[in-house]
């Protein structure tokens, strides 16, 4: 139940900078997701917060207290590891009670707390089982219960759901979010799965190459990406390389678009979400249109994804369609790119 501040936290391994000057504030009770591709430094950052890795530079401040030098076992955080790290030689109850046993809590209170926690994760009857007797989903929950045993000041999770199948993962995402909201514990979760981040986070921190690319609410990050990396990494985006020609005009290989937010000159990247691209039969008139040829149609039931080749670039449009997909590969189409939905990034 605490506020964490990172002040230009940096970690170098030999000549490699894994985390590069990260400034971040995690307000009390919030659920923050560190999101990024593998190798972006998110796990290293989490391990520094946990005290398992010492920062090369920078400061960690928890509730105004500098904890940079505090060893991991003095921090009083709860952490769920990617491998879960459940102790194979202990029963479920002994695993959950481990932190209490270390603190010398008496047996009766340990037992009560274990009961409470197993109730919380909806597995009340497994206290005496061995870890090897549990299913993947059960292990997951036990690891979560174990990390919460001593009301941690910070709840840290390192890709905890990555080993589960898609359905179970989504169910647990919702469950974990509800649990966190109920307990009000300040939580930091590392993931490479943007759906997972969008489902759970109050704040998403998008990282790449050791740096924070953007921090904001899921909707903010989705609708107003700060740069081309974020636009591409969060959801899917059509990225178009072009040249600004002034007066809000951007020249693309397939034509010129009106983009009021474009700079006056220089190379730019335009980004537009697949659901904002509108397809029409070739020859349809209107503003901001490009022409192309349908190369692939993916009908996923609820939505139809249409891939269109357009002057050497490939664009994807997604639409909810009832009945048969309106276009087939080989069809010539007209694409509308509404100016309001286009984000412009330099470069």
């Amino acid at each position: 139940m605490s506020e964490l501040q990172l002040q230009s936290v940096t970690k170098r391994f030999g000549g490699v900078t894994a985390v590069d000057g990260v400034d971040l504030t995690v307000p009390q009770g919030r659920f923050v997701c560190l999101l990024g591709p593998s190798g972006c430094g998110k796990t290293t950052l989490l391990r520094m917060i946990a005290g398992l890795e010492a920062p090369s530079a920078g400061k960690l401040v928890l509730d105004g207290e500098d904890i940079t030098e505090q060893p991991a076992h003095m921090r009083g955080f709860g952490m769920v590891f990617q491998s879960l790290a459940l102790f194979p030689h202990l029963t479920v109850a002994e695993n959950v009670a481990y932190a209490l046993a270390i603190r010398g809590t008496d047996k009766a209170r340990q037992r009560r707390r274990v009961e409470e926690l197993l109730e919380l994760i909806q597995l009340p009857d497994i206290a005496d089982r061995q870890i090897s007797q549990l299913s993947g989903g059960q292990r997951q929950r036990v690891a979560i219960a174990r990390a919460l045993a001593v009301d941690p000041r910070l709840f840290l999770l390192d890709e905890p759901l990555s080993a589960l199948d898609a359905k179970l993962r989504e169910a647990l995402q919702v469950e974990l979010r509800l649990l966190q909201r109920r307990l009000g514990v300040t939580t930091i979760l590392v993931t490479h799965d943007q759906r997972e981040a969008m489902t759970m986070a109050d704040t998403i921190v998008v990282m790449d190459q050791g740096r924070v690319q953007q921090a904001g609410s899921p909707l903010e990050i989705y609708c107003r990406p700060a740069n081309a990396f974020v636009a591409d990494f969060i959801g899917t985006s059509n990225l178009l390389k072009g040249t600004a020609r002034g007066g809000g005009r951007v020249e693309l290989p397939g034509g010129t678009l009106a983009v009021p937010t474009a700079p006056d000159s220089g190379p730019v990247t335009l980004s537009i979400r697949p659901e904002n691209l509108h397809l029409a039969a070739a020859g349809a008139g209107g503003e901001n249109r490009l022409t192309g040829e349908v190369v692939f149609v993916r009908d996923i039931g609820q939505t139809v994804e249409t891939h269109v080749a357009c002057a050497g670039q490939r664009l994807v449009a997604v639409a909810i369609v009832e009945g048969e997909p309106p276009f087939a590969p080989g069809d010539a189409v007209s694409l509308e790119l509404p100016a309001a939905q286009i984000a412009v990034f330099p470069g």
């Binding site: 005290g51 921090r75 709860g78 270390i102 174990r146 990390a147 001593v150 840290l156």
Partner: peptide
């Protein structure tokens, strides 16, 4: 590491 985060 898990044991250490739990106070050991």
């Amino acid at each position: 590491e898990a044991a250490m985060t739990m106070g050991a």
